[in-house]
Amino acid sequence: MAADLVLDTAIRDWVLIPLSVVMVLIGVLRYFVSKLMRSSQLPDAKIVKEGQVIIRARNLRASANFIPSKSFRARKAYFGNEENGLLFVPKGQAQNAQAQMFSDPNMAMDMMKKNLSMIIPQTLTFAWVNFFFSGFVAAKIPFPLTQRFRSMLQNGIDYSTIDVSYVSSRSWYFLNMFGLRGLFSLILGEENATDDTQRMMQMSGFGFDPSKSLGAEKDGLDIIQHEWALPKFEQRAEATLRKLIS
């Protein structure tokens, strides 16, 4: 009996299509709003420098064997010096950076703007969908699915007898929310700001502490053993030359 559930065409015209259209329009609107609110923020010299120091120290660690040991020792001392080395972080300053990040009103403002442009439209649309379209079976996907997909596709409908391939309106909303990213990148250009998942990643990465990675690099440099690779190259060069001649 579940198989011959017939969906009214009015549901298609008044639920399925409006929902998708509204989702697209909201996505576009959000893109422009966030574009308006985005403030170009100048990178801080200290942070840039720390990033560059880490790159350089990583290079040094990775290819230390390619420079003479005298040069390596000089660099190691320069990076890991306890007084004013580049990788040395004075104690107590690490805490400071974190605190400064939160006390900086610009930073907090930026975060709030990002959050506003993300959370407010989402709650509003969700409430709107819930209010007008709750409980509809909006669509049917053309292939059968196992029971595990029920919570994904039939959110908001509590009948266990309906076949899983029917999609409820609320689930259709969720599918649209996450599935329209490809469409957005098509109509708004590659780097559109509506990428929610990416933004969430950024949020969790917030509070990243550069001094920690500086310390890690320093430890890495400390334990590295320098073994000049160049003497080996002489033999290898000889071998290549011999091969060339023969």
Binding site: P68, L230, P231, F233, E234, R236, A237, E238, T240
Partner: peptide
């Protein structure tokens, strides 16, 4: 001596096709 080693490494990396490195050695 270091210079010779680096010329040798150039020779190795270019497969012996760098004349300047060979002359350098």
């Amino acid at each position: 001596q270091s210079a010779k080693k680096y010329y040798a490494s150039v020779t190795d990396l270019t497969g012996g096709k760098n004349t300047r490195a060979l002359f350098g050695i």
